[in-house]
Design a protein around this nucleic acid. Structure first.
Lengths: 201, 201
DNA sequence: CTAAAATCTGAATGATCGTTCAGTAATCGG
DNA sequence: CCGATTACTGAACGATCATTCAGATTTTAG
């Protein structure tokens, strides 16, 4: 297996970038290779030249976006000391990263809800080991063990937190909504939802 | 404008039902009229005979599903007395209704994230007046006015609640998850997040 | 019972899809 | 500078798509 040339690397990046724009703007259904190529100003057949097939391009796109996101969030979270602070950072940095990259999140949604396995099942819908949920779940468990958090089902709580984050990002472009105020609302919300109160002692 | 015949009504219902099954199982991309017709055991051209076009069929499908859902939830909520109780009912009945109709929710997702306007924008992504969010927002406002809830941004809180509900339903089929335990977790979660505590008095 | 209207089918149409491929252009190693 | 490899294009292929339509079948109305 030989290394990729400089040109190949650049073209692949360019095509993935055009795919993100096209997916975000027109949706998966209309994001044909012809449309993506048009946006990149290359001929359609150059895409199957650099990628095995369309699924391969979608795979590259989804993994590039989600890896960058989870890496950013995990690096920020690692700087927090208490579990409580780490939870705040998780919420804040998740929203901040994608809130400033709405096209990337829309493209992610399009792929996640459209690409299927041969048997028709969704290929990228998260499972229990999803890299955006599992670290969050572990963070919550750690906070329970050191006594910062009350007792709750960490998996359910992690799902709920992700739901509030994805919900905002999904309707960000469409509706009136303010990233900053929503972020603070969520931090306050889950602070109250996770902390011990006098009755729990 | 003449009324619809019995046959027409029955056929339309049958086609919508087949569309729901097909969307849930194969996704929007592969849910062609041919596939839907095959599932309904009719010829493909019968669909454009009963519906103006494919978008019209999707419109009927999405409105049938979401109307039934919101109606069910609103009727249940209206039976609650306090705002706190109504919030519990909103969460519980939203999850209970769709939790027992996973195909309907998947079909809803497929349409909402796939059908586009001519300019490429998502046609059915909720806006600020979305019928699943606005009643919830009003419920929260009422609870703040009568002193049951603490002060928070009702719109943001409503969005967060919907996010936790939709998140569970979206990954229900894929991952290990328990509807009942998640429901109780959410009720507890938002009870703590919305109530006044001694420091708020 | 009969004629008109409603319902339904299967074939055909034109468009677009992903992918292949022969051939051209650009780049690179010696 | 030249041959070989890499990069790229545009045309062509077969498949599938939504929609139309002429004609067949069934239902309805008088």
């Amino acid at each position: 297996m030989t290394r990729r040339s400089f040109i190949e690397e650049a073209r692949r990046a360019q095509i993935v970038s055009a795919a993100i724009d096209t997916l975000a703007e027109m949706g998966y259904v209309k994001a044909s290779l012809a449309q993506i190529a048009k946006r990149a100003d290359i001929s359609t057949s150059l895409i199957p030249y650099h990628f095995k097939d369309k699924d391969d391009l979608m795979e590259q796109t989804v993994s590039e976006i989600s890896l960058a996101w989870t890496t950013y969030v995990q690096e920020k979270v690692a700087q927090g000391v208490s579990a409580r602070e780490q939870l705040h950072i998780y919420i804040e940095s998740s929203l901040a990263y994608m809130g400033t990259r709405p096209k990337h999140f829309l493209a992610l949604l399009e792929i996640v809800f459209s690409v299927r396995n041969a048997d028709g099942s969704l290929r990228y819908v998260m499972d229990a080991e999803d890299p955006s949920v599992l670290p969050l779940e572990n963070l919550l468990l750690a906070g329970q063990q050191n006594g910062e958090f009350r007792q709750f089902d960490a998996h359910n709580m992690a799902l709920a937190i992700r739901g509030t984050i994805d919900q905002f990002l999904g309707q960000m472009n469409k509706a009136r909504s303010d990233l900053e105020s929503y972020t603070h609302e969520l931090i306050e919300l889950f602070d109250r939802a996770t902390r011990k109160d006098p009755a729990d002692e």
